[in-house]
């Protein structure tokens, strides 16, 4: 799915240079469940942004499904994201003034789906994440666990092959965390690839592979056997 070659990403602020991420080579295969762990400021989000086609590296190439992501024009990169990548955020990033149903409709609208298709698919997805009776609620009227489930429904809207998650359980209570993680297990079983940034050892333990970052450098990629065999 991903091949990263000689990537460096450096932030320059007031004559200070911060190497946010540096890697000579990193491969992520189809169907992998990768957890990225490491202390705060170690470059986890930077790596995730580069994988999502949202942050071009200062040098090197990011190959995504055989295409050099940052050699594509911006609209095509956006299209790859729209069609193949789903995002999950620590603070859910729901649009506050839209209902659950409308939030799930957003990626469908961006893809150009018609009104009826948007409604039907969004409602079915909310049903699937167990929120069939909450479709008209605004995010502020939902618990954090419910909000993250709406976000998962939105993420699934265009049926992505790749899921990029930044601390998806960081703001959740243990029960909601478990609900999200078991859904992630399902996504992997369905054949999707997951790259998940996490602080949470429990979440990291569910992944089939862990990448540890420190000061923007990968520390000996450690592959652990998938404890939850399908």
């Amino acid at each position: 799915m991903f091949q990263l070659q000689d990537i460096t990403k450096v932030y320059r602020k007031r004559q200070q240079e911060v190497v946010a991420f540096k890697a000579t080579s990193l491969d992520i295969g189809f169907g992998e469940y990768v957890a990225i762990v490491g202390p705060s400021g170690s470059g986890k989000t930077t790596l995730l942004s580069m994988l999502g086609g949202m942050l071009s590296p200062d040098s090197g190439n990011v190959w995504f499904e055989g295409e050099s992501l940052y050699d594509l024009p911006i609209n095509e990169r956006t299209q790859r994201r729209r069609e193949r990548i789903g995002f999950v955020f620590q603070t859910f990033n729901l649009v506050p003034y839209l209902t659950a149903l409308e939030n799930v409709q957003v990626p469908l609208f961006l893809r150009g789906a018609n009104k009826a298709e948007q409604r039907d698919r969004a409602a079915a997805l909310l049903e699937q994440v167990g929120l069939g009776n909450r479709i008209e609620h605004k995010p502020s009227e939902l618990s954090t666990g419910q909000q993250q489930r709406v976000a998962l429904a939105r993420m699934l809207a265009n049926n992505p092959r790749l899921i990029l998650a930044d601390e998806p359980t960081g703001n959740l209570d243990p029960d909601s965390r478990e609900a999200v993680l078991s859904m992630f297990d399902n996504f992997v079983r369905e054949g999707r690839t997951i790259v998940m940034v996490t602080h949470d050892p429990v979440a990291a333990a569910r992944a089939s592979r862990r990448l540890r970052l420190n000061d923007g450098m990968l520390i000996t990629p450690e592959t652990i056997p998938n404890t939850k065999a399908a």
């Binding site: 949202m54 911006i74 609209n75 956006t78 994201r81 995002f87 955020f89 990626p107 265009n158």
Partner: peptide, 11 residues
């Protein structure tokens, strides 16, 4: 977020 979800700059 909209851009992450696939909104183009022109949109």
């Amino acid at each position: 977020t909209l851009m992450a979800l696939g909104a183009t700059p022109s949109l």
